[in-house]
Write a protein that binds this DNA or RNA. Structure first.
Lengths: 106, 106
DNA sequence: AAAATCAATAACCAGGCAGTTATGAATTAT
DNA sequence: ATAATTCATAACTGCCTGGTTATTGATTTT
């Protein structure tokens, strides 16, 4: 399984992505705080956090009976890489086409 | 539904993402050509192409009885924007923290 | 004209996944 | 000690989605 596979899968769900966005925007949050704005039950939030953690997108920190989660922005790197790679392929093909046209023009 | 929602959803499936990658790498391809390497049936490929098209990630061009598909690299822009935005949030929080520490240090 | 090819659609099926409620384990408050 | 809080897990459910085969429409080929 490609490294960005988990990444895309994790971010595909709107609820889950919203949780991650919240963590990016507002920094470390407890499960309870996240649940308040998630629009789904606490177990659902916990499950989403589990998926995000599995994908390396979040870290958890236990403190007493509450768990604090925070975004790991670095985990988005493979996504950036993938996008650049696709753009690179595109550009290469464009360059080759340009080259071909230049040759034909002569 | 956010503009990047479709995007993430479309790219989440490995088979579908592979088809898109192929189009980026090798340029315009017919459904038949894509089917040869997809590892799934032709109808499955057609369905994936439908989803990609819906998300604006591919264009189709009919020529006789065959349909040629090509990647629309520009459609990845919202994804890049989203990533930058997340990184931006992160950076802002970091800056505020840095600022706070500087004040405390005095 | 008849046969073959290409791709889209229809109809169906199985598995996965996001959601729920109920419960348990650990910690904190009374 | 007891009660309350916080989160994770278990068990279940319904739907969505990715896959299949069968078929049709459209175009080429023979």
């Amino acid at each position: 399984m490609a490294p960005h596979d988990m990444l895309f899968r994790s971010l595909a769900d709107p609820t889950r992505r919203a949780i991650f966005e919240r963590l990016c925007r507002d920094g470390e949050q407890t499960v309870g705080a996240l649940t308040l704005e998630a629009g789904v039950s606490q177990p659902a939030v916990s499950k989403h956090l589990g998926v995000l953690k599995e994908a390396g997108l979040v870290r958890d920190r236990h403190e007493g009976r509450q768990t604090h989660y925070s975004a790991q922005i670095g985990a988005l790197a493979p996504l950036v890489d993938w996008t650049s790679q696709m753009a690179g392929f595109w550009q290469n093909r464009f360059d080759r086409l340009e080259d071909l046209l230049r040759r034909m023009d002569q």
